Simulated assay, not measured.
Amino acid sequence: MKQTFTDISVNGEAIPPELIATEAQNHPAPKGKPGMAWMAAARALVVRTLILQDARRRNLAAAPMELAPGLWETEEEAIIRQLLDEAVEVETPTPEAVRAAYQSNPELYRAPALYEAAHILFAARPDDVVARKVAKDQAEAVLAKIKAEPKVFDALARDHSACSSRANGGRLGQISAGDTVAEFEAALDRLAEGEIAAEPVESRYGFHIIRLDAKAEGEILPFEAVETALRSALEKTGWFRASRAFVDALAEQAEVTGITLKAA
């Protein structure tokens, strides 16, 4: 594919198309629109170049940190981290600001809901189209029997489920948000207590017949329980905004050709 935006430079420093093509692999794009990945990669490299140029102006010397045993930052990663540590100033959120953030929407700090549920799993690998069709057909046939006579759920779970819970009639015991795959949890949220999902629920494991036996909404956590995590979140948000402002300032003072940073 012919690229049409190859003459990209930052303060006279060219960014080679080959480097952009390599970086583009790290930027997903909709199918059939590789140009979006190319543009995102080009913008990322422009930002990186702006930061590295500023680091050189400040005469920063790389001091790589060990990220994990035997795993060290590259010199470039170290320089970028050191520059941002030096140049980006973030205000520590005040106790009043932390409390105000909590009080603005306490619902955000609700403990996970608890469920008691049962299921019958008809297993099939995600990439096996034939097996998934068979699993769906089997699930629909068994679900029809359960709809006609709900009391047979336990027996049919023992006979058909590919999950170890079959020994307990498909009962999973008490589970909470995050204990199951997203599709399974979403189905539980839609069900009323005692209700069986009207259709088999598809997940990466196959197809599930799901029954919700009980549900307990999580309580809103008190401020003291979330204060530390909330302060950390506000600090991260503040750092992101300040670093973005720093990069924007570098871009305003720079001569960037071949691309705009508006979508960066």
Rank of each mutant, 00 (worst) to 15 (best):
L52D: 03
L52A: 06
D54P: 01
D54A: 11
D54S: 06
A55Q: 05
A55M: 07
A55S: 13
R56N: 06
R57T: 10
A61M: 12
A61P: 00
A62D: 06
P64W: 06
P64N: 11
P64L: 04
M65I: 12
M65A: 15
E66R: 05
E66S: 07
E66T: 04
L67C: 01
L67T: 09
G70S: 08
L71N: 03
L71T: 11
L71Y: 11
E77W: 01
A78V: 09
A78R: 02
I79C: 00
R81I: 04
Q82I: 02
L83Q: 04
L84E: 13
D85G: 13
D85Y: 01
E86C: 05
E86K: 12
A87K: 15
V88C: 09
V90C: 09
V90W: 02
E91D: 14
E91P: 03
E91W: 00
T92N: 10
T92S: 14
T92M: 10
T92H: 07
P93G: 13
P93E: 08
P93T: 11
P95S: 05
A97Y: 03
R99M: 10
A101Y: 02
A101V: 07
Y102Q: 08
S104A: 15
P106Y: 04
P106Q: 11
Y109G: 06
Y109K: 03
R110H: 06
A111Q: 13
A111T: 10
A113W: 06
A113N: 14
Y115T: 05
E116S: 08
A118V: 01
A118S: 15
A118T: 06
L121G: 04
L121D: 13
A123L: 05
A124G: 04
A124D: 01
R125I: 00
R125C: 04
P126D: 06
P126F: 02
P126H: 07
D127F: 04
V129D: 14
V130C: 01
V130S: 09
V130A: 15
A131D: 08
A131Y: 06
A131F: 08
R132W: 09
V134Q: 13
A135T: 11
K136F: 13
K136V: 00
K136I: 07
D137Y: 05
D137V: 13
Q138F: 01
A139R: 00
E140N: 11
V142N: 00
V142M: 02
L143G: 08
L143F: 10
L143H: 09
A144F: 02
A144R: 15
A144V: 01
K145P: 00
K147T: 02
P150L: 10
P150T: 05
